[in-house]
């Protein structure tokens, strides 16, 4: 609960417990709108269905790339609000691409979400450690993919 603290205290004399809750009263700003998504996926079929799900159902503007290097090339020009990144790709793979994106001024602040089938606990922990804001698990439901992306987007901006 970042920004909100819950403190459990024990009164030593009476041996009674008390809770103190403090809520950070930050200025509540409207989150930026999510419109442009860079989708990086080397599986053409997945690329195709995901694009349909995000564009036709989610109404986002999607730029699909088949490799990490293609993504690095096109991201500055496209200017995505969010990047969806596959993990298992021909070099550079997902993590390497994330690292390169975070070093480019145009994308250094752009949130990245991994979309992957490799989702064992330690793997997910590793992605978050690398700087991804969340992970979308393959296979995904094409009808709710856009909602899931939006949810991640909002949570990122209003935790």
């Amino acid at each position: 609960m970042a920004g909100k603290d819950v403190i459990l205290e024990r009164d030593k004399t009476s041996n009674r417990a008390s809770f103190a809750v403090s809520i950070d009263e930050r200025a509540h700003q409207a989150p930026p709108k999510l419109t442009r998504i860079l989708f990086v996926e080397d599986e053409r079929d997945i690329q195709m269905v995901a694009r349909l799900a995000l564009e036709d159902i989610g109404g986002f503007t999607v730029e699909a790339c088949s490799s990490g290097s293609e993504a690095l090339e096109r991201a500055p020009c496209f200017g995505p609000d969010l990047i969806l990144l596959d993990v298992m790709m021909p070099a550079p793979d997902g993590p390497a691409t994330l690292s390169a994106l975070s070093e480019m001024p145009a994308t250094a602040q752009t949130p990245v979400v991994f979309v992957t089938a490799k989702v064992q606990n330690h793997e997910v922990a590793h992605y978050l450690e690398l700087g991804a804001i969340d992970v979308i698990v393959k296979p995904f439901d094409p009808m709710t993919l856009a909602d899931r992306v939006l949810e991640i987007w909002h949570r990122h901006h209003d935790p």
């Binding site: 349909l52 799900a53 298992m88 089938a117 439901d141």
Partner: peptide, 30 residues
């Protein structure tokens, strides 16, 4: 672990395409 990870990935990858394409077809939006 690598085996499970690999097999899981290899099963999930085609399934992603299958589920997604069938899901889109099923929604009637196409």
């Amino acid at each position: 672990q690598e085996f499970i990870s690999t097999v899981s990935h290899e099963l999930r990858t085609p399934l992603t395409s299958i589920i997604a394409s069938l899901g889109l077809l099923d929604s009637g939006r196409m």
